[in-house]
Design a protein around this nucleic acid. Sequence first.
DNA 1: ACCTGAACACCGTTCAAGT
DNA 2: ACCTGAACACCGTTCAAGT
Lengths: 205, 205
Amino acid sequence: MNDQSEQWRYHHGDLRAALLDAAERSVRAHGAAQLSLRDLAREVGVSHAAPRRHFADRQELLDALAEAGFTRLGESIRRAVEQTGEGFAARTRHAVSAFAHFATENPALLELMNSTKHQGAPSTARAAEAAFEPIVELIREGQTQNVLEAGEPEELGLILYATVNGITMLVSTNMVPAERLDELTDTAVRQFLRGAAGEAHSQAR
Amino acid sequence: MNDQSEQWRYHHGDLRAALLDAAERSVRAHGAAQLSLRDLAREVGVSHAAPRRHFADRQELLDALAEAGFTRLGESIRRAVEQTGEGFAARTRHAVSAFAHFATENPALLELMNSTKHQGAPSTARAAEAAFEPIVELIREGQTQNVLEAGEPEELGLILYATVNGITMLVSTNMVPAERLDELTDTAVRQFLRGAAGEAHSQAR
DNA sequence: ACCTGAACACCGTTCAAGT
DNA sequence: ACCTGAACACCGTTCAAGT
């Protein structure tokens, strides 16, 4: 009993966090499809029925994992925007780069986040919205500076988000080698800024 | 024995096709994660070990399904391009629309096609390449007409492909309502054509 | 060549019972 | 409140055996 104390302290009162931690490693290593609740329980040192107290079923755990993923993604994007002060184009490039590298460094997690299944999980949907927020704010900034055309900032934000997400998928599915990630996102951002340019800039050409 | 003859005729010598057919319906209805080989065997009227003759394991069947999906997607895009003769912008809009609607009408299939797992399946990768071909040809056409800037057509094609794929994912994950699909792809195409415009057009503005 | 039936080692989920 | 252990109804995969 004494030599198990470390394991006990780890999940005592925090089995939920311990399970999420083990689940994240499992998803990273083998993908969400291979994740086994019984495996996680074993790894954490608890009976196979214990997770039930914290997650009603397998999907609920996957939803929680996706939610955490969106939260981290949003933080990563927000950090990138805040730490860049050299003008709108550079801020956009850094935000996109943060997104793209987070996605390609966590391909299985992003597959889970992009999965159809967590449609019904409201907290996951909220986390996804929150991750998207810094991008909308960035677009708004570009519109204020008249670098981007006027209009609904959400629309432009969605297109930028979709483009970057799509590019990372090309890499994660091996349709494109990882070495081309930066080249593709740079071209995409450059064209986005041109295609959505405000009057002042598109006339200055 | 006689009243089973229809079922027999259906898969006799073509169990593979019968399984793929049932699998496609199952994926469409419940997603690839829920697909069960034993279920398919039951539905087709064969023992649970019979599929083994045609698919080494579950993943091989999913790979074949993804491959068929890419083939149909490519055909759909190619048809859209060929049936439109009213200039490059319209051809691009139609190709993108065909892609977007195929994707949102078959969300579970696209999730499978975008899955990390079929990385190792060469025939699936070839089918994905083939589906991408009509888009590259379209870009080449735009460059020839100097509507698009010169350069590697594959690069522009990948960005367009990624953007549309990403937009359909926003819809399939319910981040955006399906009613906004056309609005988003139209805006995306318009901005793509502006952002990747050749000299002749960008100066004419 | 193609399929069957039993067997193996797993699953997720449920639930009475323990502390 | 939180966890256990047995039980249930499934899986995918393997393999000897049948035709």
